[in-house]
């Protein structure tokens, strides 16, 4: 789990900063963003393994942020946080390529398990893509 690069996106500052501190305490490399646009800029600049994104945000909402991030950097795995009656939007997000969704208030252990699984998939996908590339070259 150590060193997984996480991007945490939520407009609720108290929630975001506290969750970030807790994840950092568990040795994860966390960057947090208060809006969808901020998150998109961060993805353009740096590389992340897993993004945790709130579905309901003012401005660019979670689902749109997910789509933009996936465009920029397709290997980032995304976990959606749904704080409201939006299991549908969670499922909608999974159709758009999110790895999973988790309902707020969330248990930190549950989130960590999902982050770990998402990271595993990211590593696998990257390896898989590299193999395909190599095969295409030869």
């Amino acid at each position: 789990m150590e060193g997984i690069k996480i991007l945490l996106v939520d407009d609720e500052e108290d929630f975001r900063t506290t969750l970030a501190s807790r994840l950092k305490k568990r040795k994860l490399d966390v960057t947090d963003a208060g809006s969808g646009n901020e998150a998109i800029e961060l993805v353009k600049q740096g590389s992340f393994d897993v993004a945790v994104i709130d579905v309901k945000m003012p401005g660019t909402d979670g689902v749109e942020t997910l789509a933009r991030i996936k465009e920029i950097s397709p290997f980032i795995e995304v976990i959606m946080l749904t704080g409201h009656a939006s299991v549908e939007s969670g499922i909608e997000a999974m159709k758009l390529g999110a790895y999973d969704y988790i309902m707020k208030p969330c248990d930190i252990d549950e989130l960590l398990i999902k982050v770990g699984d998402a990271y595993q998939r990211k590593i696998f996908q990257e390896k898989h893509a590299a193999t395909i590339k190599r095969k295409q070259k030869t």
């Binding site: 609720e12 108290d14 929630f15 506290t18 969750l19 807790r22 704080g83 208030p105």
Partner: peptide, 14 residues
Amino acid sequence: INNPLAVIAEKAGW
């Protein structure tokens, strides 16, 4: 109610 609950949970966890 869910959003403040989430904050309270995180703070207690912290």
